[in-house]
Design a protein around this nucleic acid. Structure first.
Lengths: 209, 209
DNA sequence: GTCTATAAACAGATAGAC
DNA sequence: GTCTATCTGTTTATAGAC
């Protein structure tokens, strides 16, 4: 005995609303995007929108939550993997964190909008906090392994290094979102190079193998 | 025969409105900040605000313009100065571009808000464009000098390098604005170190003098 | 489930008294 | 020059017909 028509159809439409909302909010920003625009973009009316979501803010939170789950899944897989070269493991992790910025132009814009709004709205902040923490934590653990293996400049403060590797990844998102001449996919290798430069001692060669 | 009461008093009050507006907009964002809030923060009424400015947007533009003038003046002075070591000249320039981020917590927040809004509003974009262009142009010229002097990795693409030095400076502003545990003043030296790491060849020592 | 019509609150901006 | 009172349009959200 099936439950009328709901099962997948409802979830699919909900997802469709979320997808179109993500693009619109990325382009215009959360504050400037009206619920009416959200409706016309999704091809539905106001009444229908409020049938699927209790309010505008919840739509934004739902958009952020699904992105967060993608990232979390990605990170967990990478942290489990054992690799011989600790620096290369760290670099792989960094690359995977940076890669979404190259997927589609709206992605870095959405990430940046989320970061800004998180700074102003407690609800959005707590939604994002988990992802950021696990991101930094992953970097920290992999960096510790690389340092223990003597592959990183001993004088480089661990907390500072984590902060700056994280900052460099954020910089890729920032430039991809703001600078029209900046192509994230092309610039990704240079991000990797810069991270390596940060880890390497200023006065010494990185000891290979 | 003096002109009634206007001369300095008007300019001083205008400036006071701008100063309080800058802090408020930095904290809340432009869209979330209402004209009423701008008034109560400045200690005046709505009617008075519109006596000094034609509208909300013009207040924001005025805030950005004055910041821009400070930066432009700073850059010009640095570009004129001749220095023996070309890399050091570049590093001095980078440091001066990054330094405002360490001045007061609201400064990086305001800069970031401006960058976001510039991406969405043509008027704000054109107001900011001049500053960004002269910033990148300064980096480009100083980098060219350093490259000509053989102090920079020959294989490093010039445009990429400019983009990433600029991105690193923006990263300092971004982290200072978003990350409460990130102290811009403390992290400035590490920014300098990272820029040096970027310029240095991955396989060779930076040839000193 | 989806729509149209509408309520309730609030935004930016103006009028005009003092 | 500065204020209070008010206009006008828009925004989020709800009611209720189909």
């Amino acid at each position: 005995m099936p439950r009328r028509v709901d099962p997948v159809k409802h979830a699919a439409k909900r997802q469709h609303i979320l997808d179109s909302a993500a693009v619109l909010i990325a382009e215009q920003g959360y504050d400037r995007t009206t619920t009416s625009q959200l409706c016309s973009q999704a091809g539905i009316s106001l009444g229908t929108l409020y049938h699927y979501f209790p309010g505008k803010k919840q739509i934004f939170l739902a958009v952020l939550t699904q992105d967060q789950q993608d990232t979390a899944t990605l990170l967990d897989g990478l942290l489990d993997a054992e690799q011989s070269d600790a620096v290369e493991a760290l670099m792989t992790f960094v690359q995977h964190l940076a890669e979404p910025a190259t997927a589609h132009p709206f992605v870095p814009k959405l990430v940046l909008e989320a970061m800004l709004q998180a700074h102003r709205d407690p609800e959005i902040r707590s939604t994002l906090e988990g992802a950021e923490t696990s991101e930094r934590d992953g970097i920290r653990r992999l960096l510790a392994r690389a340092t223990a293996a003597g592959q990183v400049d001993q004088e480089l403060n661990s907390d500072d290094a984590v902060a700056w590797i994280s900052a460099l990844i954020n910089a890729l998102y920032l430039e991809a979102a703001m600078n029209p001449t900046f192509d994230a996919a092309t610039q990704l290798p240079l991000l990797m190079r810069t991270v390596r430069g940060l880890l390497r001692s200023p006065g010494k060669q990185h000891p290979r193998a």
